[in-house]
Design a protein around this nucleic acid. Structure first.
Length: 492
DNA sequence: TAAAAGTTACG
DNA sequence: GTAACTTTT
């Protein structure tokens, strides 16, 4: 521990709203200087994508929780609003800081902002230190035999599984708090005044009922997952009516838990109880998909904007605004799709299996450009992030690296029957067909009139008929895909 | 992390 | 007729 220094050091929190396993915070504390913590709501930097509605809602609670935690161990959190480049420079100068610490980000715009700030501060004689607080491994540390980034998930998975993961850091016992200059205190904005939560209409009730935000909620959610849902995860994770997944995605999104903490926690569980090995490995592979998405975003910065595979540049997407609206509102007439889209709208989250079905439906049955879906999820998911959202949409659309082939088209009825056999998931989100017997709940249009009547369902009135028929829609999608084939690709 | 069509084996 | 397996999209 170095001696006390006159000038404070800064920690800039960005989607790493925790005190435990926070390398930047730990390094700042280790300097022995006073530590001032801040965050920036940046809707202004060039190219930086403003948060969607659901993530803004989550951010509110996440920042409040972080401020509380920092008040208990240090001097709290100041939040500023505006372009990070101008604000962070000003903060560093006015606070008289000797150094600034942060954990890295991975989208192109974020990297550009951070690089510009680092240069600006370095020119002013202020050191900027960056760390890995977000991933198991930095993208540039995992490469194949040829020294290139992996393009296929399975070998990437094997490489990561064979590699040790850095230990998770404990939270600092005490953070030597400093005093902010009054000009900065005046410039900061209370979290409640940032306008992150909706007022009228207040659409966040369903999300409030579903989630607790902040590090404590994230850590407790993880402990609960290990206790209650890790056993059986590999089988249960695909059944949306079962509490079979970890539901940690928004906590990971905002860094309320780190992937390193998850890695070591799950590994310890499996070491204690060898029968958990298969479930633990399956769960960790999902965490590794998350690293893989970030690696892809790092190497292919246009992942959110353009198809990774250029053959999709000329895909004949259609623009059916009415159909897209029906998809967004959960009125497609396919119960599993509608249940998922309504779960998303009400709770800010959708079960992974259903995400695949609903996304496949938008892209393949409706022939909608995946970027429309990506934008909707960006606005409505509490876990929306630049890497996972873009990568996963490209994956389902078939245009991404190592993605599902385009001709893999989910049948929403068959998927519903397979993964929600009793229709419990559908019943909880599509109440107007809840009384249908399980045999018809995935295809109300097949139910005899007497069954519909008994269930109080009037086709096309209380619940829509399918907006596109499955068989012809499937054929149309395959036809569109075939149209991409160039002469050179045709079999000779 | 698929579905549908085609083919074969067996009654 | 249909279950099991293979091929195609």
């Amino acid at each position: 521990m170095s001696t006390d220094s006159q000038s404070p050091v800064l920690v800039w929190f960005r989607d790493d709203h925790r005190l435990s396993d926070h390398p930047a915070l730990a390094a700042a504390v280790a300097t022995g200087s006073r530590v001032l913590c801040f965050a920036v709501l940046d809707d202004d930097s060039d190219g930086l994508r403003p948060l969607g509605g659901a993530t803004r809602w989550w951010l509110h609670g996440s920042l409040e929780a972080l401020d509380d935690a920092l008040r208990r161990t240090g001097s709290g959190l100041l939040v500023f609003k505006g372009s990070a480049l101008s604000i962070v420079g000003r903060i560093a100068i006015e606070a008289g800081a000797s150094a600034i610490f942060w954990n890295r980000r991975y989208s192109a715009a974020e990297i550009a902002v951070d690089r510009a700030i680092k240069k600006h501060l370095t020119d002013l004689g202020i050191r900027a230190h960056s760390f890995n607080g977000r991933l198991l491994h930095e993208p540039w540390t995992i490469a194949n035999q040829a020294g290139k980034p992996f393009q296929v998930f399975t070998p990437y998975l094997r490489a990561v599984m064979a590699r040790p993961v850095a230990a998770a850091l404990p939270p600092p016992k005490r953070i030597p708090g400093g005093t902010w200059p009054s000009a900065l205190l005046d410039a900061a904005i209370p979290v409640g005044a940032l306008g992150l939560e909706p007022s009228s209409p207040d659409w966040a009730d369903g999300m409030r009922a579903e989630w607790r935000r902040g590090e404590r909620a994230g850590q407790e959610g993880f402990e609960r997952f290990c206790r209650e849902s890790l056993r059986g995860y590999a089988d249960n994770r695909d059944h949306p009516s079962v509490q079979g997944t970890s539901r940690l995605s928004p906590h990971l999104r905002f860094g309320e838990i780190s992937p390193r903490q998850i890695w070591h926690g799950v590994t310890a569980e499996a070491a204690r109880e060898p029968s958990l090995a298969r479930d633990a490995e399956k769960y960790l592979s999902e965490i590794i998909w998350r690293d893989f998405s970030h690696q892809m975003l790092h190497y292919y910065p246009h992942m959110p904007d353009r198809p990774h595979s250029s053959r999709f540049d000329r895909f004949p997407w259609s623009e059916d605004a009415k159909a897209v609206r029906a998809w967004q509102k959960g009125r497609t007439g396919y119960p599993i799709v509608d249940a998922g889209m309504r779960q998303l709208w009400q709770t800010g989250w959708m079960h992974n299996r259903v995400r695949m079905i609903a996304a496949s439906f938008l892209v393949k049955h409706l022939l909608t450009d995946w970027r429309r879906g990506e934008a909707w999820f960006w606005d409505t998911l509490v876990d929306a992030d630049p890497a996972n959202n873009a990568f996963s949409w490209q994956w389902i659309a078939g245009s991404g690296p190592d993605s599902a082939p385009f001709h893999r088209i989910f049948n929403p009825v068959a998927q519903g029957e397979k993964f929600d056999p009793d229709g419990d998931y559908i019943r909880s989100f599509v109440p107007e067909i809840a009384e249908l017997p399980s045999g018809f709940i995935h295809k109300p249009w097949d139910a005899p009139p007497a069954v519909l009547h008994a269930a109080g369902v009037r086709r096309g009135e209380t619940y829509p008929d399918p907006i596109v028929p499955h068989g012809p829609a499937r054929e149309r999608a395959l036809q569109a895909f075939r149209s991409l084939r160039s002469v050179a690709d045709l079999p000779s």
